[in-house]
Nucleic acid binder design. Sequence first.
DNA 1: TTATTTATTATCCGATCGTACTATAATTTT
DNA 2: AAAATTATAGTACGATCGGATAATAAATAA
Lengths: 222, 222
Amino acid sequence: MESVGSSMTKAQEQIRPREQQKQATRAKILQAALDLFAERGFDGASIRDIAKRAGVFHGLIKYHFESKEELWKSAVDYLFERQSKEMADPDGFDDLPAREQARDWIRRYVHYCARHPEHARIMVQESLRDTERLRWAVKTHIEPVHRTARKVSQRWIEAGVYPAIPLHALIYMISAAAQSPFMLSPELKHGAGIDMSNPAQIDAYADALVTMLFDHSVRREN
Amino acid sequence: MESVGSSMTKAQEQIRPREQQKQATRAKILQAALDLFAERGFDGASIRDIAKRAGVFHGLIKYHFESKEELWKSAVDYLFERQSKEMADPDGFDDLPAREQARDWIRRYVHYCARHPEHARIMVQESLRDTERLRWAVKTHIEPVHRTARKVSQRWIEAGVYPAIPLHALIYMISAAAQSPFMLSPELKHGAGIDMSNPAQIDAYADALVTMLFDHSVRREN
DNA sequence: TTATTTATTATCCGATCGTACTATAATTTT
DNA sequence: AAAATTATAGTACGATCGGATAATAAATAA
């Protein structure tokens, strides 16, 4: 699991050791919140358990994040900001042919899902009930992401990479397929005996999805 | 939402009105548990709220189901028994060509997911953490279902309907894609403004998934 | 050095949780 | 009709929840 770094510069750290400690505490709480919200959902993760995992006193959460709701929103903000950074198109991406773009994007997204399964876990648990938190997440993060996803998908459909199905259908089936085995890795571990944190398994799954989407040519003759 | 019927015969009902009432209460509790476990997860759904929704006194849950864990297991038993009934292959299924079998199965499964979104909601919430409940569900229900799914998938791969990717990858990407928009329908409602309980939307999504899996022929020329 | 600010800690409160135990009323059995 | 059974209701307990308030200790500002 990756740590949530503070945003301090080196100069600031030397001048204000107090502020440095404060941000470090904040980051530890945020990381613990990501872990426990992903594992148990908003209701199931208690403030006291989050504080315990972060190694701080539970009252500090109110001090740093005002409330449990605000802590959750801060955690989700962090998730989507990190996704935006890590899923940025690499250099030369625009010069690739459409099919290679789609193929590359799928591979990168599968690896993102494998690296950060807590993202899908937190968002799925929140998206299957109609709460104020979901509405906030939709407006603040999901809608912007889907807006660009629709634009890109539309281009790939026009290029013949994907079939001409409704954009929301395309987006949901692809993202679900990419996230599923990593989000549900405990189930795969006990059921199929497969460890989805194994890099070989991650690559194999990315290969499988790409094959399923782009390289299955036999079907027409059948 | 469908009701959880009692298994009483008419004769029994007339002879034993007490037993009839008992089973009706049990069924009401089970239905309320399905709703609330799906909406809030095991921890988030309280015994008192389940009883309140069922319109019964909360102590009755211990009387009928012994404990919250046992109530959850009874609810999951019910889910998988219903799935087994409703997903049984229709008459003449074995006589269809492999591709038509796969196409028909996908359509039926999408409609099952639309009819009973609580199934995926309950199981997903349980499958993303490693608990005793998950291990029980894997051994009791998920493994048997996946065993037959692997057999069927293998046949369809050999028939060229699906590409030759690992069976677990095929199963997880297809079931995730089929469940996703119905499981996450609150998100689609607020985000895309789409009501996935609308029969037209259900059919459209089934069409889209079938097109994506079987009828996308342009890709080879690209 | 002294005064002030503040990051952290220590308690406490009312609410709710799962569940155990007892009471009751109505049916079923004898 | 009397006795036994039992489905349902009432209540109480210990634990834990989110959050509020007060105390403390250390760093910063004066």
